[in-house]
Each structure stands twice: as structure tokens, then as C-alpha cells.
């Protein structure tokens, strides 16, 4: 595929996720979901992700929020990719996506439609937009595992609200 064919295809994928977002809208009853709301106070992006798990398996991901096309399309792709995966598979997919937007080597096989956002790696000022939904999912999955390791029966549900974290900052 030539570069222009590929970019044409990628553009269609991004636009499709932006205009027809997958898994959009939050569950009316949040019981049974890990709900994570992440905000980027510097730009106003505000995204909520809900994850329903059973044991190791992700049964459902919902997402809803306010943000630019990159933020919203990316969250839609995330929700589609992670659904039906195991928690550890999902974490690997998130890791690969982050590598891609940070212009590092990554495994394109793992991240499906989200490969269409590879152009973000040239736009460092938009990396936070692209990763907001993924960070929310990552936080939720971490919390579920933490709860489980503490032996909590309700480990798979809860609510987290935070500003976009800075854990991607380079350690000094």
C-alpha cells in the first residue's frame, strides 16, 4: 500500500471512530463497573471509562466524554480493542499503544484500528489527547487487580476521579 493510500485509509478509520464512537454512553447503573473519570485540566478534555470484568476477563468497556477528535476517536478504538481481552492482554495492548504515540518501536499487530493514530507520534502536544482514554482504562485495571490482591469481594467495582496523571513523565 502506498503512503497516500495508507493515510487515506487511516483518515477514514479515525473519522469513523470520531463520528460513530463505539461503546459510547455510560451504564445507568454503575454497580459492577470500575468507573474512571480522567480530566486534563490544561485543555478541558474530560473522559469517563467504565470497565466490567469477571475474573481475568474484560466483559465490557463503556466510554463517554468531552474532547477533541484525537481524544474521542482514540477512546473509541481503545474500548473496542480491550473488550473481550484478559486484563493482562489489555495491559499489553495499552503498553503497545503508548509506545506508538511516543515514537518508540511497537507491535502494530496488537493495536488494530489504533494504528491509524500513529501520526500522533509527530505531534507531542497531542499525545495526552490520544492517551487519555487508555490511561483511564489502565488505571481502572490496576485498581481492580489491587482490590483483588487485597481480597475484596467487590474488587471489580469502584470509582476513580483524577486529573490526567503524570506517570509518563521521564524519571530524573
Amino acid at each position: 500500500m502506498s503512503y497516500s493510500d495508507q493515510s487515506h485509509l487511516f483518515r477514514q478509520i479515525v473519522m469513523d471512530h470520531y463520528r460513530n464512537p463505539r461503546n459510547k454512553g455510560l451504564a445507568k447503573d454503575p454497580r459492577g463497573y470500575m468507573t474512571v473519570r480522567l480530566k486534563n485540566p490544561s485543555c478541558g478534555d474530560d473522559l469517563t471509562v467504565q470497565i466490567k470484568t469477571e475474573g481475568e476477563k474484560i466483559l465490557e468497556i463503556r466510554q463517554q466524554g468531552e474532547g477533541c477528535s484525537i481524544c474521542c476517536a482514540s477512546a473509541s478504538m481503545m474500548s473496542e480493542l480491550l473488550e473481550a481481552e484478559t486484563i493482562s492482554e489489555a495491559e499489553e495492548i495499552i503498553r503497545q499503544f503508548k509506545l506508538m504515540v511516543q515514537a518508540e518501536d511497537y507491535d502494530a499487530e496488537k493495536i488494530g484500528d489504533a494504528v491509524s493514530l500513529q501520526g500522533v507520534s509527530r505531534l507531542p502536544q497531542r499525545v495526552k489527547c490520544a492517551t487519555l482514554g487508555w490511561q483511564a482504562a489502565e488505571r481502572g485495571l490496576k485498581q481492580i487487580q489491587k482490590n483483588r490482591s487485597e481480597g475484596r469481594a467487590d474488587h471489580h467495582e469502584g470509582a476513580i476521579e483524577a486529573d490526567v496523571d503524570k506517570e509518563d513523565e521521564h524519571e530524573i
Binding site: 477533541c68 481524544c71 489527547c129
Partner: peptide
């Protein structure tokens, strides 16, 4: 068009303006 998306278009053409609150 979300203001950040629009700001990205301006930025590409060398125009620096503010998007946000």
C-alpha cells in the same frame, strides 16, 4: 469542530492561538 482540532490546523500553518477555557 472541537477547538483543539481547529487549533491544530492553525498551528500547522504557523498561526499560534489559544484553545481551551
Amino acid at each position: 469542530v472541537h477547538p483543539h482540532d481547529a487549533a491544530g490546523v492553525y498551528d500547522r500553518e504557523g498561526i499560534s492561538l489559544r484553545a481551551g477555557h
